[in-house]
């Protein structure tokens, strides 16, 4: 596969400086997003998924947050180094975002049509009337019933699902190259959730954009994503094709996440959960950040931090000593030391 690269993130580090110290919420994230691809970012809550996505548009509240290192290359231009003016042309235009909470993410006292139309006026320099018409058309496209009437309403007059449709219409108003969706369906009930996912897939086909889909729900990932990046403690620990990841998870954390999924094929009696909790971003361990919870942890895991490395398959990246050549050697040695 030699697809066109849209977005490339290199060694992204976003830290928060607070009275408690420095929280390394995002601590060296690398990934590449291709055109038309859907990349899922998964991981337990607090792993740094939202901060990663907000960093991409530099929406981190500063202070206390700051992108301290790294590059975010959008068509080879570094967003981290952009001036405000240039950055504003990217936001909502080339990259747009949908947030988890459709209740609070829309302005409560501005009609939803206007909230969409203002983006269109801004980026496409359309006058008021055509911009409004386009907003209504967009609302129709995302399947909002009687869009003409709804456009004039304020968010409190719409249900949660409708609001999320409005958010999607707003995000797609300027046909972005990249859509970032941070848990877009988490706050919705299951039926609405399925409808929204379906809608996003449809619109992606029409517009041909790339999507970064953030969720803690692996079930959703298997439905919509081509690629999956698993995040743990501010880093990516496994990045692979979605099918392979679900078939043969490589990282012990991914394995843990998958075994805690309800499985319809085997009649599992009990859901397994990963014991322990995510280490505090204020104080990560020196070695592998998963070591305290990992059933395979060895001495080296506590002494050294593994890198995110390609395995024999160049499409697959894992951050774990188990999948390096030295693991076999280590294993033998350790067995000698402690039988």
């Amino acid at each position: 596969m030699n697809k066109e690269v849209v977005l490339q993130v290199k060694n992204l580090k976003t830290h928060f400086t607070t009275s408690k110290g420095t929280a390394k919420a995002v601590d060296g994230v690398d990934f590449t997003l291709h055109k038309g691809e859907t990349l899922g970012i998964v991981g337990e809550s607090g792993c740094g998924k939202s901060i990663t996505s907000l960093s991409l548009l530099r929406l981190i509240p500063t202070p206390p947050g700051k992108i301290v290192e790294g590059e975010i290359l959008l068509n080879n231009k570094d967003i981290v180094k952009m001036k405000e003016e240039e950055l504003r042309k990217v936001r909502g235009n080339q990259i747009s975002m949908i947030f988890q909470e459709p209740m609070t993410s829309l302005n409560p006292i501005i009609p939803v049509g206007e909230q969409i139309a203002e983006t269109i006026r801004l980026h496409q320099r359309l006058p008021r009337k055509p911009a409004w018409q386009k907003a209504v058309d967009l609302l129709e496209m995302v399947g909002l019933p009687s869009p003409e009437k709804r456009a004039k309403q304020e968010p409190f007059q719409l249900s949660g699902g409708m609001r999320q449709r409005v958010m999607i219409a707003m995000a797609l108003a300027c046909t972005p190259e990249v859509l970032i969706a941070d848990e877009p369906t988490t706050a919705l009930d299951v039926t609405i959730q399925a409808q929204i996912l379906e809608l996003m897939k449809d619109l992606q086909k029409q517009i041909g954009m790339s999507i970064i889909f953030i969720t803690h729900d692996l079930g959703v990932v298997s439905e919509v994503c081509d690629q999956v990046a698993v995040m743990y403690a501010g880093q990516i620990v496994e990045h692979r094709n979605a099918k392979d990841l679900f078939k043969t998870p490589l990282h012990p954390y991914t394995q843990g996440l998958l075994s805690s999924l309800p499985n319809i094929h085997e009649n599992q009696q009990e859901l397994q959960t990963i014991e322990g909790s995510v280490p505090s971003p204020y104080d990560y361990p020196v070695g592998c950040r998963f070591a305290d919870r990992c059933p395979h942890a060895r001495e080296i895991c506590r002494a050294e931090a593994p890198d995110l490395l390609e395995t024999n398959n160049a499409e697959t990246k894992v951050r774990c000593f188990m999948h390096t050549e030295k693991w076999e050697v280590i294993e033998e040695k350790e067995e000698l030391v402690c039988p």
Partner: peptide
Amino acid sequence: DYIRTARAKGL
């Protein structure tokens, strides 16, 4: 959140 949304639109 809606202020973050407004910023995310590029306003």
